[in-house]
Write a protein that binds this DNA or RNA. Sequence first.
DNA 1: TGTTCCGCATGATCCAAATCATATGCGCCG
DNA 2: CGGCGCATATGATTTGGATCATGCGGAACA
Lengths: 228, 228
Amino acid sequence: MVLLSNKFNDCIRLRTTPLTNNHLLDSLHYCVMSALDWIPNEVTAATRRRTLQAGESLFHQGDQTYGIFVIEKGRVQMIRHDSHGRSLVLFTAAEGDLFAEAALFSETYHCDGVAVTEATVRIYPRSPLLSLLGRDHAAAQKFMALLAREVMSLRTHLEILNIRSASERVLRHLSIAAGPDGHTIEVSGTLKEMANELGLAQEVLYRTLADLETQGLIERADHLIKLK
Amino acid sequence: MVLLSNKFNDCIRLRTTPLTNNHLLDSLHYCVMSALDWIPNEVTAATRRRTLQAGESLFHQGDQTYGIFVIEKGRVQMIRHDSHGRSLVLFTAAEGDLFAEAALFSETYHCDGVAVTEATVRIYPRSPLLSLLGRDHAAAQKFMALLAREVMSLRTHLEILNIRSASERVLRHLSIAAGPDGHTIEVSGTLKEMANELGLAQEVLYRTLADLETQGLIERADHLIKLK
DNA sequence: TGTTCCGCATGATCCAAATCATATGCGCCG
DNA sequence: CGGCGCATATGATTTGGATCATGCGGAACA
């Protein structure tokens, strides 16, 4: 809950700070690049849009699965609660991300979906999507490939979290997050968020980046990091 | 099966290597329960079997993807190497597990597959499987569901690794790994491996389990742990 | 223009997990 | 039989990341 209030503050900030590319594209009436762009029109027509306040729930653990989501604006988290009310963030989805896609093959949601900022999501209702996947081979193929990529990316994330040393963890993350040139990373969002993704306290990330720079292993400029 | 395992383990003592239920079933000419049992015969016919020595590689990072695997015996790991030769275990597959399934939609393997014990795997060659998934809706559905489950289970794993406290991490793992009765866990393999999965040093796991037992939160007997 | 909030940054301290060391019991094998 | 390897276990010590505290600078806003 402490976390939530922080994120809420994040959101206030987000709306007033310079917008990302996706935001910009959106405001220019392009579509948000999304993971489901290949879905044919007759199914897209069945989708709805929903706007959420920061902190509002999209679904709760145990709810009947009614659909999966593409985030059009804002950020939405998967949160699981334990018996003592403590909560744990499983995943944070940002713009263009597919959300709760694995629930498509489950009768119920296995965690809560909660907006951390004011957010807009596109809802792909379950049965039209399932029926599409059941008749359209190409669509099914795409969806499988998407799930497979998800699996690999989750494995990579696991790999990073298994690294003890902060500096090694950061370096590994950087080399994975590097752009096509292999050594330039554009930091989207705040370092705080990056620290969260890496399972590190923000202070540790700041320090580690500073250390790496004095060691000459990286170079930093604004929101760019260069590996060497 | 869980209930029977104790008896079986006792018998197994007489054999040279510890066997699991699946081994036993296999030796009784049942099939190994596997994630791909629903694959129709004409595709199963295209599969091959391969036996690996402990330490032998099934594939290397960068190799052309030639198929995916079901472990019939032994354990196989996905391992990724960094630039300094340090290696990291991404995943350990045990009997009946599907292995490298995500690679089906990738041109190359993204990590090494290495047997940690002597192992037998069934190889499902890539193209027959892909073509099956491209024409058989039911098969595609099953495979998608399987990938979706994988995604959820990986998320759960991530969730566990994000827990700082060793005791909370262990408790969460136990409550997730609990059998259908909700509070009995059968420890397959060694505690050392379990520690590895949990991202803990083995000593810490031993200590934590001992602590939890003295606190009366769990009970232990041989290879069973009971939550309370 | 001052106030506030927040991201970024760094110093000081604490603590829990890693690590090192050591012991025991068991199965395997020469 | 005796020695070796390994899982299990526990004590002692170290260490690195978490946490607390504080400061700086920029952006939003009144």
